Computed example of a mutant assay.
Amino acid sequence: MIDLHIHTTTSDGSDEPIDILIKAQQLGLKCISITDHDSIGAYKKLKNTNILNHFKGKLIPGCEFSAVHNGKPIEILGYGIDIDIISSTGIVSDDKFYERENAYLKKMMDVCRNLNLKYSDNLSIKGKYFSTQILHADLRKYPENEKYFTKEIWESLNAFYRTCVNNPDSPFFLDQAKDYLTVQEAAALIKKAGGKSFLAHLYGYFVDDHEDFLNSIVSLNALDGIECYHSLHSMDKTKYLLNYCNEHRLYASGGSDYHGTLKPNVKMGESITNTKIPYDILKPWLPSNVT
Rank of each mutant, 00 (worst) to 15 (best):
I22D: 02
I22G: 00
A24C: 08
A24K: 03
A24D: 06
Q25D: 14
Q26K: 13
Q26S: 12
Q26F: 01
Q26L: 06
L27E: 11
L27G: 00
G28W: 05
G28R: 05
G28M: 02
G28V: 06
L29G: 04
L29K: 02
K30S: 12
K30D: 11
C31A: 15
C31N: 02
I32T: 08
I32W: 01
I32N: 04
I32Q: 04
S33C: 13
S33R: 07
I34L: 10
I34C: 08
I34T: 13
I34V: 13
I34P: 04
I34S: 12
T35E: 03
T35K: 04
T35Q: 03
H37A: 10
D38L: 07
D38G: 12
D38E: 13
S39F: 07
S39K: 08
S39Q: 09
S39G: 06
I40E: 03
I40T: 08
I40K: 01
G41K: 07
G41F: 07
G41L: 10
A42M: 06
A42Q: 05
Y43F: 14
Y43A: 08
Y43H: 10
Y43V: 11
Y43R: 11
Y43M: 08
K45M: 13
K45D: 11
K45L: 14
L46K: 04
K47G: 03
N48V: 12
N48A: 13
T49N: 05
N50V: 15
N50P: 00
N50Y: 11
I51P: 00
I51R: 07
I51W: 01
I51Q: 02
I51V: 14
I51N: 02
L52T: 14
L52V: 05
N53M: 08
H54T: 03
H54N: 09
H54D: 01
F55A: 06
F55K: 02
F55D: 01
F55R: 00
F55W: 03
F55V: 04
F55I: 06
K56D: 09
K56Q: 14
K56C: 00
G57N: 04
G57M: 07
G57L: 08
K58D: 08
I60W: 01
I60M: 08
P61I: 10
P61R: 10
G62A: 14
G62T: 11
G62N: 10
G62Y: 11
G62H: 11
G62L: 12
C63D: 00
C63Y: 04
C63A: 13
E64M: 07
E64A: 05
E64K: 05
E64D: 00
F65Q: 05
F65A: 11
F65Y: 10
F65W: 05
S66V: 07
S66E: 09
S66F: 10
A67I: 06
A67Y: 01
V68Y: 05
H69F: 13
N70M: 13
G71P: 02
G71F: 05
K72R: 15
K72A: 11
K72L: 15
K72I: 15
K72Q: 14
K72D: 05
P73N: 15
P73C: 14
P73W: 12
P73H: 15
I74R: 03
I74Y: 03
E75D: 14
E75T: 12
E75W: 06
I76V: 15
I76G: 01
I76C: 06
I76F: 07
L77A: 11
L77F: 09
L77Y: 08
G78K: 12
Y79P: 04
Y79T: 10
Y79V: 09
Y79H: 11
Y79M: 09
